Computed example of a mutant assay.
Amino acid sequence: MAFISLSAAVLSGGKAERMSRQDKGLLLFQNEPMALSVGRALQQVSDCVFINANRNLEAYAKLGFEVVADDQGYQGKGPLSGLLTCLAFVQTTHLLISPCDTPRISAEAFEELKEAALSNPEKICYLSGVSGTHPLHAILPVEHGLAALKYFLDQGQRYSVLSFYEWFGCQSVVWENGEELLNVNTPDELV
Rank of each mutant, 00 (worst) to 15 (best):
H134A: 13
G129M: 10
L83V: 08
V130R: 10
F152D: 05
V142F: 00
D188Y: 10
V67N: 01
S119I: 14
L118F: 07
V142K: 02
V10C: 02
K150L: 11
G132E: 11
G14P: 03
V49N: 08
V161C: 03
G132D: 11
S46P: 04
L95P: 01
A148Y: 05
Y151A: 14
L26G: 07
V90Y: 00
L96G: 00
T102I: 09
C86I: 01
L153A: 09
A69F: 02
H144T: 15
G129Q: 08
G82P: 04
S160W: 02
A9T: 10
P141C: 07
G145S: 05
S163T: 07
D71R: 10
D47K: 06
K114E: 12
C48H: 15
N56C: 14
F65R: 03
S81G: 07
K123W: 07
V174T: 13
Y165F: 15
Y151G: 11
F164I: 06
T92C: 09
C100M: 13
L84G: 02
Q91M: 06
L42E: 05
A2C: 07
A69S: 15
L146T: 09
V130M: 11
S163Y: 03
G129S: 13
G82C: 09
F65W: 03
A61I: 02
L127D: 00
I124S: 01
Q157E: 12
E180S: 08
Y159R: 06
K24I: 15
E189A: 12
V142G: 03
G132A: 08
L28G: 03
L80I: 04
V67Y: 05
A116W: 03
L57H: 07
S163P: 00
D23P: 05
A147I: 10
A35M: 06
R18C: 10
V191N: 15
I4G: 02
S81T: 06
E143F: 06
H94R: 05
C100L: 06
E66G: 11
D47W: 01
E112H: 13
G73L: 10
A107G: 12
A53E: 05
K24P: 08
V67G: 00
G156E: 15
F3I: 08
M19C: 11
T186R: 12
D154E: 15
F89T: 13
K114P: 05
S5G: 06
F50R: 01
S119Q: 15
Q22S: 09
H137N: 13
D71H: 11
G82T: 12
S12F: 01
A8I: 02
Q30F: 04
F65V: 08
A147K: 14
C100Q: 10
L140S: 07
L153C: 11
L87M: 08
V184K: 01
T186M: 09
H144W: 09
A107V: 07
L36C: 05
H137A: 12
A147T: 14
R55W: 06
M19F: 08
P79Y: 10
G129I: 07
D154H: 12
L182S: 11
I105A: 08
Y151H: 14
V10L: 04
